[in-house]
Design a protein around this nucleic acid. Sequence first.
DNA 1: TCGAAGCAATTGTCATACAAATTGACTATA
DNA 2: TATAGTCAATTTGTATGACAATTGCTTCGA
Lengths: 239, 239
Amino acid sequence: MRKSNAVRSLYGHVMHELGQRIVSGKVKPGDVLPREETLAESLDVSRTALREALKVLSAKGLIESRTGVGARVLEEQHWNQLDADVLAWRCASMPTDDFVDKLVEMREIIEPAAAAAAARRRTSAQLAQIEQAFRAMEAAQTLEAWTEADLQFHDAVLRATCNELLQSLFSVVESSLGTFFTLSARNVSDFKYSLPHHQKVLDAIRRKQPEAARKAMLTMIADSHASLQRDRKRKRKKA
Amino acid sequence: MRKSNAVRSLYGHVMHELGQRIVSGKVKPGDVLPREETLAESLDVSRTALREALKVLSAKGLIESRTGVGARVLEEQHWNQLDADVLAWRCASMPTDDFVDKLVEMREIIEPAAAAAAARRRTSAQLAQIEQAFRAMEAAQTLEAWTEADLQFHDAVLRATCNELLQSLFSVVESSLGTFFTLSARNVSDFKYSLPHHQKVLDAIRRKQPEAARKAMLTMIADSHASLQRDRKRKRKKA
DNA sequence: TCGAAGCAATTGTCATACAAATTGACTATA
DNA sequence: TATAGTCAATTTGTATGACAATTGCTTCGA
């Protein structure tokens, strides 16, 4: 969905590497990173590139650099938890039940309210975008096409709220759905059972019925959460 | 509340300056910034410092640098709207009614849900922190002491949810309350009328009554929103 | 008219040097 | 001995200059 800035640039690779080390817990809050010259050498980049990576990590609240002391890893409470990179790193390294539950809680707070707001304020163009995403979900033949369309559906709903602050929370939905798909490795038909839920949300937004939209969205999320928890029990039985 | 990293460092000043230019609309999405060498000279810093500022702005989604082309200002939809700096810049440059309403909408979504979650899961230590903030509000003699205590109250509630993703939304509350205080220039006693509201939230969380906590928090926010709108009308009459 | 090669402009990366801040040890002094 | 002050070592902060890599435009040729 989004262009990962770590794909191309050198500094991006460094940021990604260090970010993952921190978020995954390889280096813990309170730890001090090696001095820049050493770290740059061990990562095989110049000090310039390393410093740009450190600056961005500092902006994300993961570290704090102080002259004469070094770069210290900050406590988790300072982390920019809603940052798309930080979320992605957490999902990649620790999709524990606990964290997934927190993601779901966020969705249960955000998305029903967003659906209600969308039902109130959506323009016809915004409605069209939601409908387009829905049709793409109907037509999806592969799991990839489905996830893509699913994300577009939820993004379109957030955009239809006409509140860009709400829209910025899309990163949470993205991470949540992403881990959901990886945790429960199934095929397309298994997912299409949620089409009726999406249909209800779409209809309510089309008819401008806020409360119906809120309810439908909440049901959808609760439902997918429940199915995820069933999967957990199944896995535990196996183990 | 938070240490502004722009106070000390040189690169911080540059980031702040450029960030404000973008968010305030001095340079618009689609515009291309002057080349780094020129821009560095006009800001009276080295290219090194400028580049570190640009990297951070890029991480906040405000610009995108491309080799051979330059740094282009991105559309608002790409901005990291929940980033504390971006919020602060928006509040500083355009506390329009429209934007304040969006902030309030966010609070109405986040905080009642957070209060409910806190009522369910708070530890006794977390409850103590909320109580401490409440007592500080009672004892506040100056407007500064009041705002400080008020922020601590809402922060403590978010922390008591035991969901660090929710806690990261504190920047929204901070910005919202901040603009609220600047828009309605009053004295302490004018604010203390909201003490009973806070009391109700505190009591509900203490007694572990989620729905009561949700309701009390929603009432509090709606109430302060209403008083803000009264102020608006008054101002328009004057003008 | 169209395509390819070359050219100019700009960011990306590197290396080096020095300034500024912090820490801790050492020393002088009461 | 205790204490304040000074100094030196360490590390990040900033500046400078150089070159590589990429992009967009121009120009030349078929």
